[in-house]
Design a protein around this nucleic acid. Structure first.
Lengths: 242, 242
DNA sequence: GAGTGGTCTAGACCACTAC
DNA sequence: TAGTGGTCTAGACCACTCC
């Protein structure tokens, strides 16, 4: 079983073994290097690197090179209140969030249903993107009924965390009431929002938060997160065992 | 913006538009067809089909052809008791499960911790694979302490559902106590178990069930499910809104 | 400008499936 | 056996990033 007939898988395995332990962002051998080192054509060299990319071991950037990938665990559970900054910092990377836009719109049907409000109810719509180091890894829409906070735009441009703004400005305590997580190949507009050209799988996280344990719905969000950069882990039930 | 420079993406878009509404399993144009129809080389034709495969729109089988893919929603939530047969049948496909082996082993550390039992406690280990039509889509290990059911092998070979066997033979009522869901590119042995050669993303679902609402742990499982065949959806919290 | 990865051609041989 | 997709070579041009 040692002699496999598929050249690029052998090359990929050999390279993969050399990658373990290297810090994320480290530059690895390029297609040309592999061509010379293993005496293969460019197709085989390329296939080997693409295999490593499929394994989420490396990230390839046109014009720049191939680098060791970092994949961060993003844990979602009932008790935990997830924070982009905490999660990303804890993994040793630099988090960043940018507000792309805040406006007031009438709630569309699906979002209104989630917030248990009539469609058309005025709400702030917050568009944000989040980064891991300098990689755009997440983009999300968040809705907050105007009734909850009359003013959101100014506060959000100053603060990083919507959760914090809601607590301090609106005096509410958002608690995760409902969350749905899945994975899809997103439509072109979402891919564009994540600055992705290729079709790749992306997490879809939808949620709704209430004030306190069972109060009024105060917030609702839909976010897409790159699956190659984040490993979403969803936990149901008591986390008594490991 | 109409004239894109990347040929294979145009071809993929055009083919994708022609796929909508076709029943799963329908044969679609092969690489050779595309080569002739769009007057491109095989590399471009191949790239187009691979793009459709990345979008999970088609499934390619060496030697056989390219076919419209079927992706089934598999919903996991606290209240729901998921059943392979129910889920797959509801999607209009033919479910099948095969017991690959039943034996009694001492619980390994990680599984023992999940079941809150001492490591080495004797338990039945059940290895199963499940199919959607004739596609091997899931493989799983399930552990049941011998104390819960002295005999499992005979019963499982006759019945499809472990849940049913536990209810009828062991007189327990398994309730989902803890579940963790994520997505990974699995190690080679799991890929082999799913009869996959390429490295593809696969769901990992781990769970533990108790007897009744808060009784003794009765079952614990780890399963891998092909992400191209199943869209796992995890729901946390009350499913009050759509 | 040098070097990277992305696209593409025109071939070739092979593994596999279906008939 | 015919036809499919999988691997691979040896080229080519291009888009992009970095210096």
């Amino acid at each position: 079983m040692v002699g496999r007939v598929i050249r690029y898988l052998d090359i990929a395995d050999e390279l993969a073994a050399e990658l373990v332990g290297l810090p994320p962002g480290t530059r690895v051998a390029g297609e040309h290097d592999i061509t010379r080192r293993f005496d293969v054509g460019r197709a085989a060299a390329r296939a080997a690197l693409q295999e490593l990319e499929r394994r989420l071991l490396v990230r390839r950037v046109q014009g720049a090179g191939t680098f060791v990938n970092r994949r961060i665990d993003y844990v979602i559970s009932q008790d935990r209140r997830p924070s982009w900054h905490e999660t990303v910092s804890a993994a040793g990377a630099r988090p960043r969030s940018v507000v792309r836009g805040v406006d007031v719109v009438g709630l569309p049907d699906d979002i209104a249903a989630r917030l248990q409000l009539p469609a058309g109810t005025p709400a702030h719509r917050l568009q944000r993107v989040s980064y891991i180091d300098d990689l755009l890894a997440s983009c999300s829409h968040e809705w907050v009924p105007v009734a909850t906070v009359p003013e959101l735009g100014a506060a959000m441009h100053a603060a990083e965390s919507l959760d914090l703004v809601l607590r301090q400005v609106a005096r509410v305590e958002p608690v995760r009431a409902w969350t749905r997580v899945s994975l899809d190949v997103p439509p072109p507009d979402v891919l564009a929002g994540l600055e992705l050209e290729a079709s790749v799988p992306v997490w879809l996280v939808e949620s709704m938060s209430r004030d306190g344990a069972a109060g009024a719905p105060v917030m609702c969000s839909s976010g897409w997160m790159r699956a190659d950069a984040l490993r979403v882990v969803v936990e149901l039930g008591s986390s008594s065992a490991t």
